[in-house]
Simulated assay, not measured.
Amino acid sequence: MNSPTPLPETPTLTVAPLSADAHAEFLAAHPTASFLQNPRWPEVKSGWRGESLGVFADDRLVAATLVLHRPLPVPSAVPLVGGRTLAYLAEGPVLDADDVDLPAVLTALTERLRRDGAFLVRMGLPGVRRRWAAGDVRRALAAGEHRMLTELEPLTVDDDAEAVREELTALGWQAPGESEEFEAGQPQFQARIPLVDDDGAGLDAEAVLARMDQTSRRQTRKSTRSELTISVGGEEDLPTWQELYEETAERDGFTGRPLSYFQRMHRALNAADDTECTLYFAHLDQTLLAAAIFVRQGRFAWYVYGASAAQERKRYAPRALQLRQIEDALAAGCRWYDLGGLSPSLDPEHELAGLTRFKTTMGADVVQTQGEWDFEISPLLAKAFRLYMARR
């Protein structure tokens, strides 16, 4: 009788710090990883301490993540709570292959973070659960017959992503809720313009323009005939950006970021390999009409911030800058151009409906990500921290 073939042993996973160079090299092999996982990102985030961690199966690096630590607002000498931190994994961890055991990776990471003093781990695991076509969302928003985006038939569903949610729940992670407002951290629902076709072949600018609704396409084409000058600025031009950005914030009623934030972002991301942070301006003669900040890492591009003047609106300067960013993303071989978060509400009277309308008329499909999950190492401290943040 033949002896049974022994089953392969499950490799022991260990967690160890990664150097910035080793982390960047790992991300280079994962071209759609978020710039929020870039090891230089902690240079941008004041009030947070960053570290890169690798998960190893024997000697093979199978996952990596940037962790941002935010301490509790108490002196470090206070017993039991001093030095305890929120550990935040934005768009991480990034796994090296489909066969990597996610529960084992997360168990190893949370145990390491527990030993390091984390009271709560918040994770925005990469991945898309569902995707809705731009045109379907536009029509549903106009009709006003549905309350939430999730009531619509999606264009695609990732069954593996649904299985991941079951695994996370079994491990004790708390799923994010669905809110009509923007959540803290990274929005669960995001607008993304595909830059490749269903077979993965790159599109051209005309194909991307064809995704827009008639009005957006007409305005974008008109912007190219509006005698605008499009230029790229450097770090020394950020004060000019800031002036227009603050004007936009005051007019539109939002709280903007300080100049120092954009200076750190521009400096840090442009110092990273295969990552760029670009400042664009649109002028009419000597008058600045619009500005935008664009980030690209690997094969993913993001429209991160925009600003515009109140005058000469019919020149459609922001449209011109959107087109320029799309063209540059296409030239870099990007697969997606991300326009940021939006509300899943389909109420045409909702205060964020205009944002959804704008982004989908630009041809952006809507994706539902995994959202941000919480793992409570100390439920009492986690509850106290949430109450503190809610009252700020």
Rank of each mutant, 00 (worst) to 15 (best):
W302E: 10
L18V: 10
A307S: 10
V208L: 01
A33P: 02
P154E: 01
E51Y: 07
I193A: 01
G83V: 08
R221N: 06
T215K: 14
D252A: 02
D99I: 00
E153H: 14
P348S: 06
D213G: 13
A191N: 04
D213T: 03
A272M: 09
N2I: 12
F254I: 00
Q188D: 10
T10L: 11
G144C: 03
L72I: 04
A191E: 00
D365C: 01
L381E: 14
E178M: 06
A384P: 04
L113S: 06
S52N: 15
T224L: 08
T156G: 03
P126T: 02
Q368C: 05
L339P: 09
E206L: 04
V157K: 00
D197W: 07
F56W: 07
Y316F: 15
L120G: 15
V137T: 08
H23D: 09
A384N: 12
S343H: 01
F281S: 10
R221T: 14
R217Y: 08
T215I: 08
G82Q: 13
L113Q: 10
P42Q: 12
P379F: 08
R112L: 03
K222Q: 13
P79Q: 09
P348Q: 11
Y88D: 08
G50W: 04
G371D: 03
L152R: 03
A310N: 06
N38A: 12
V55R: 06
E151Q: 03
W336Y: 15
A329K: 01
A87M: 03
G333M: 05
D199G: 14
E153C: 14
P348M: 09
T215G: 14
A64H: 07
P93I: 05
R296P: 10
L355V: 12
L330C: 01
